[in-house]
Nucleic acid binder design. Structure first.
Lengths: 149, 149
DNA sequence: CCCTGTTTGTTACATTCGTAACCGTTGAAA
DNA sequence: TTTCAACGGTTACGAATGTAACAAACAGGG
């Protein structure tokens, strides 16, 4: 508790980052090896798969991505023919995005793999530990959201 | 539980990343605004402050940073006069690094701020939630370490 | 109708980052 | 002694990212 040394291994921001990076890196192999997707592209795909139709701004807010990341991910998915844009007739700044047939197919192929990954990760924990993870994350999310608001 | 839609907001890798990014971004203001440090530089400073003397390779292993990140962070800290290198006489590839007097001063100034940040973050949680966070993170770390080994 | 300010989304530029190549050093085997 | 693989650390180069500037479209007064 002395204020002269920080035990980095116990420091919450560091632990969170280390953990998130390891998990993210590990999981990214699933969509990277199979489809060559980047993380922003995967997130955009996941958001559109879940919500069917969204604007770029909505994707950014929902997936916590900078708008330039969204813009580039959308452009790449469109280039692949996985995504369709439709300009809003009542506000021509806005583009409504949705997955094409082939984009939906890729999404549907990835969802079970993603769920499997999560399932296996949590299966290595005891039931009480799983509950701790879920409750702890929710609590931290609550605090972080309070701070930013 | 259906395998056709993934609820991104409940998906563990995504939640972890979102949380870690938010906390890291928030905390980074402390060392960035005050000293203009980048995250790799802060981590290197923290590692050397904790362990007194380390090699670049050890810092990378300890802080989960790529060796090029460490190399650049060390170079910058040295440029500031915060860090001293000493070539190992028995193996001239190895450099033993340690903080200089001014580097130590900066470290000592930052440690209480870091601890304060963590304290305030956890103070917004109830006791049971804090326990959940600590236990949940430890459990996840265990699993991730098992996977990579 | 124009002017101003705001919003959506894209692009230019500089910075950061990782892969891979690299240099100098070491140790060990031939 | 010579050779060569392995290691510590740096650097070059391409990819990814964020900041800021930007164009186009809207909204609301004057």
């Amino acid at each position: 508790m002395a204020d002269d040394v920080l035990i980095l291994e116990d420091f919450l921001p560091y632990r969170l980052n280390r953990l998130a990076e390891a998990v993210s890196r590990d999981f990214s192999r699933i969509y990277r090896e199979r489809y060559g997707l980047t993380r922003p592209e995967w997130r955009t795909l996941a958001a559109l798969g879940q919500y069917c139709t969204m604007t770029a701004t909505q994707i950014g807010a929902n997936s916590a991505m900078h708008k330039t990341k969204v813009s580039r991910a959308v452009a790449e998915l469109e280039r692949r023919g996985w995504l369709l844009r439709e300009t809003d007739p009542s506000d021509r700044r806005v583009e409504h995005l949705q997955l094409s047939r082939s984009g939906t197919a890729a999404y549907r192929a990835l969802v079970p793999l993603a769920k499997d990954y999560e399932r296996k990760l949590l299966a290595a924990l005891e039931a009480a530990e799983q509950a701790n993870v879920v409750a702890g994350m929710s609590a931290l999310e609550r605090v972080v959201n309070e701070k930013s608001s």
